[in-house]
Amino acid sequence: MATTENAVVRTGKTPVDPSDVVLELTDVVQTFAAKGTRIHAVNGVSLKIARGETVGLVGESGSGKTTVGRTALRLYTPTSGSIVFEGDDVSRARGGRLRRLLRRRSAMVFQNPSTSLNGYMRLGEILREPLDIHQVGTPADRRKAVDEILDRIGLGAAYAQRYPHELSGGQRQRVGIARALMLDPSLIVADEPTASLDVSVQAQIVNLLEDIQAERGLAYLFITHDLALVRRISHRIAVMYLGRIVELGTSEDLFTRPQHPYTASLASMELEPEHRIVPEGELPSPANPPTGCAFHQRCPIARPQCATDRPELKETTNPVSGQPHAFACHFPGELTIAAASHTQHVVPAPLPLVPAPAAN
């Protein structure tokens, strides 16, 4: 197992082929009925994740991040829109077809391993359960697979006889990761997987996830509030606000050249308090979203147009990095962010609306 001496999150990102798409969401909408009203949790989200890619999903609590992740795995059936997984439309798949096309090839790592692991089962039983359900291999094959995965995550085969309560929080999350890997998925949705762990243990878990991604070519949708962490590990980051993606680009572009005022405010949280841009008020209710740009009521550069016309997510090519960059703002790049130095400021200039090259 990794020690605290080397518990530093590594920053290298393996290059990916953007055309090798594992998951594609197109105009996904997810609403829920609650006390006579409709909760607009997700409002037209489109997103692609390639094999071997980590896409970070950030935003305030209530922005719809977890709902996107659970809908992508069809834990919720989308109200509208499409979910294409490894080339197959699974938006309305049910029963055996859903299990064959999606359930066996995707998995989720939950935030709290203390509640996501069955406390009445030994670790060996927890890890063997997916293999039993899908009838993978012989009983001997399954026992061998459990021993191998326990070795891979740094615990060892002897832990198969232990119960979750006998482990530390970091060890339990390792088991949660191991359970997600048992059916050899191509996609993992990680929902705040380090939020309940100490800082040194967080780094160990993230390094484990990155190592496994490099070995297996996994695609990750990494949902988190930890901006420093998501910046380091993500190839691209999608910023959500009130059920919509308001900006999408490489981690470097989003933190150094943010175009949406909400992204600028998030990026500024890494700076000293006097340089931070803190939006006034609270996130509006998803039961009664505002007209126009959902952020206009809290935006320091909002104009009358922002209250009436909802900006669409426009994809451009960032002229500095040459990478695709999308944003939904009528006045992109106008919000100034103070840089880490007290004597230097970064003013993200508006990006020209030059369409990105079409995907082959």
Rank of each mutant, 00 (worst) to 15 (best):
Q161N: 12
R143S: 15
A140F: 07
R128Q: 11
L155S: 04
E129M: 02
D141N: 10
L123F: 02
D141A: 12
R143N: 13
Q135N: 12
D141C: 09
Y120K: 13
L123E: 08
I133Y: 06
D141H: 09
Y159D: 05
L150S: 10
G119D: 12
L155T: 08
E129W: 05
D132F: 03
E125D: 11
K144F: 10
D151K: 13
R142Q: 15
E125C: 02
I133Q: 00
R162H: 11
I133K: 00
D147R: 14
G124C: 03
S116D: 06
T115F: 01
R152L: 15
D147Y: 12
D147H: 14
A157I: 08
L155D: 02
S114R: 14
D147V: 08
D151M: 07
A157H: 12
T138W: 09
V146Y: 15
L155V: 04
T115E: 02
K144H: 15
P139N: 12
D151P: 05
V146K: 15
L117G: 04
V146Q: 11
R143H: 15
L155N: 03
V136P: 01
I149K: 10
L117W: 04
D151S: 13
S116W: 08
T138H: 05
P139W: 09
L123V: 14
N118T: 02
R128G: 03
L131Y: 00
N118V: 06
V146T: 12
H134Q: 01
R142K: 08
Q135E: 12
